[in-house]
Design a protein around this nucleic acid. Structure first.
Lengths: 299, 299
DNA sequence: ATGAAAGCGCTAACAC
DNA sequence: GTGTTAGCGCTTTCAT
């Protein structure tokens, strides 16, 4: 019998098996913006780990839209995914809360939420930005501006907290007139926020940003006013993607191990699926300061 | 009854439906290298179109490995996907040939194959590179080098053909000593190929490359020998991703509409699935020359 | 029209 | 051990 099966190239039907066993070996992955370099790097790590364990990844790109996020997740659940990875969550996400009440295995990657405790892996945002501020302080900067991301996302809030903490540690005044927030983590929003900042004051010698994309946006805004980097303004980003190295000037940044983040996220989900309970695990990955040409000693 | 269903938030089970109807509304997408900026942009377009039509995307990253490609596709087929999108195919891919013999709807995106006719959408590689050569010729360059990609992939072969054709059109000699090929479409391989080229000769004033990644690799190699861009060497890339604009100097390149490519690919697959036969459609998207700081008049 | 029944391909439970 | 059977939740067919 087996010989005949082998000859005919028989392969079991996943669909029928799934109907019977109630396990699809499908994992849903929701991403806010696939074109943002961060996410492909994470997805790659996830896909490796989950793929090796026999799981297949279903991908949904929410385009930073909460409604799309919700409908994608619904669709995934009606597809009976064995687990979910969310990289889209807002701090007060109702969706995450609802999912946590279900028994669906769930892991947050890259972002956390308030109120409800869910296994997650993300960068150590607070300390990363504190390190960025420390680097600038060591170079003699005292008027350090901040371009932040949305405060309703953990990466936005915690990186802002890191900035505030960094100022405090170095005894620098915190001045709301040199802080601006971008509405999204993309280049265009970064340019807008930086233009806003420049319209208020130019009384700063350095800018810390909540992401490399925002920093690139600042590059554009600064070029528009003729301010040169790093001679007049030093810049530090957050993320450390390949393109930050290629930028003009290369961007000093806090480098985050995105691929590792994906691997860990995948493993956390596998643990969840396999019912290895314990309390929900929360992993924070330390970023590393990579000094490049965008920061200089205060002139 | 309906009212009760609505109250209980009933949603039909995709798995059972799929078993009964033999349609999963799942589409498999195979990508060679998710971290290469090109592919996320295409996947985004695909996901939009297919998602709107009720299909869910299964993603597999082959990491440029033929065996992985094959096993991913097998896995997708045993998952009963309704169609496949391959961005991984080699010119003489046995896999594509086998799939074409099956009745599985199949569309190639970004790359074509020889021998077998399958619906596909890709950039117009030959004419794109011909345009790149024309731009350099118009700037007075006569010794134009070429850094190519793998010749067993359509994008590698056709962009090389475009180079040869461009030289011919402008009456320039083709000289094998100013042509080198990278083993993969990534930055590191580009650096290696360019170093090889530089070891042979420096008798050229411009380089055309088969992709932006390869061009960035050349940036590194040229910096290593102290040659400046564009004063001593002009550079043209192919692809036109966001990071080429940010590079140092910004890269003159042939910009390809990747998002549109994804949309068209998705629509081609939907047509296939819906059995709108006709002969296999092959779409070529014209690229557009975007002139930036990496090209200058011959010194 | 509305309702009952068969069956998609597999696995788990049970009988032998 | 090995063989048989029931049934996962849906759709489609057939009978009312």
């Amino acid at each position: 019998v087996k010989a005949a099966a082998a000859v005919l190239g028989y392969e079991p039907d996943h669909v029928a098996r799934a109907l019977r066993t109630r396990r699809t070996f499908l994992v849903g992955v929701a991403v806010p913006d696939l074109v943002n370099e961060v996410f492909p790097a994470i997805v790659r790590g996830l896909e490796n780990v989950l793929g090796d364990a026999g799981y297949t990844v279903i991908l949904a790109n929410s385009e930073n839209d909460t409604d799309r996020e919700r409908s994608s997740v619904r669709a995934m659940i009606s597809r009976q995914v064995d687990g979910l990875i969310l990289m889209t969550s807002h701090l007060r996400s109702n969706l995450v809360q609802e999912l946590a009440e279900t028994q669906t295995p769930l892991v947050l990657v890259g972002r956390n939420v308030d109120r409800v405790s869910v296994p997650s892996v993300a960068s150590d945002d607070v300390n990363g930005v504190t390190d960025a501020v420390a680097h600038l302080a060591a170079l003699g900067h005292t008027r350090i501006a901040f371009i932040g991301g949305p405060l309703d996302i953990s990466t936005g809030r915690d990186r802002y907290r890191g900035y505030v903490e960094g100022l405090r540690v170095h005894g620098l005044d915190s001045d709301p007139s040199i802080v601006a927030f971008a509405s999204r983590f993309d280049e265009h929003a970064g340019t807008q926020a930086c233009q806003e900042l420049l319209a208020w004051t130019r009384d700063f010698t350095a800018i810390v940003t909540a992401s490399d994309t925002l920093a690139f946006g600042c590059y554009t805004a600064l070029a528009g006013t003729g301010l040169s980097i790093p001679a007049e303004v030093s810049m530090v980003g957050f993320g450390g993607w390949p393109s930050s190295r290629r930028a003009c000037p290369p961007l000093t940044t806090i480098s985050v191990p995105h691929s590792e983040m994906g691997c860990i996220g995948g493993n956390l989900l596998l643990a969840q699926i396999r019912d290895e309970y314990e309390r929900p695990q929360v992993v924070r990955l330390k970023g590393q300061l990579v000094v490049a040409g965008s920061t200089a000693r205060r002139g």
